[in-house]
């Protein structure tokens, strides 16, 4: 089997992955204009200042959209098809690519709750649909 496509851990992204390994999903918030974002960047994409801090996400989010892979584009995922990939918007604003746990996504804008879990021995953020 092909190697898992592990993230490239850089000084910028290391705190994000390290927090996940401790069970926390974090995002960056600008200390100048309060804008919040993911994925990790060196400067605030709103005011362009480099004055930001990591903040822990509540874990509440909503489903923006999703797809279901019926074909693996990478060998490591060959035995996992069909699997879903979702765009999730956290209640604090940042968006991320993630996936929805069984029974999977049903409709756009449904409420989601964070459920961090291990894939190939490393924690990644995943979400579960919650009743409204």
């Amino acid at each position: 089997m092909a190697d898992f496509p592990a993230p490239e851990r850089t000084p910028l992204t290391e705190p994000y992955w390290a927090a996940l390994q401790e069970g926390r999903l974090t995002f960056q918030r600008c200390q100048q204009c309060r804008h919040a974002w993911l994925p990790p960047r060196g400067e605030c994409p709103e005011c362009l200042e480099a004055d930001w801090a990591w903040e822990q996400a509540s874990g509440a989010g909503r489903l923006v959209s999703w797809v279901i892979y019926h074909r693996a584009f990478h060998d490591w995922f060959r035995d996992l098809v069909p699997y879903n990939v979702a765009i999730v918007e956290l209640e604090e604003g940042p968006r991320l690519i993630s996936s929805v746990l069984p029974p999977g996504p049903a409709r756009i804008d449904q409420k989601l709750a964070l459920e961090i879990g291990a894939v190939a021995g490393m924690n990644v953020p995943r979400f579960r649909c919650i009743a409204e």
């Binding site: 898992f4 496509p5 993230p7 994925p39 584009f73 995922f77 990939v85 690519i97």
Partner: peptide
């Protein structure tokens, strides 16, 4: 797509 490949995002 970068680090999001961990989710199978290709």
């Amino acid at each position: 797509w970068g680090d999001d490949a961990v989710h199978g995002w290709f």
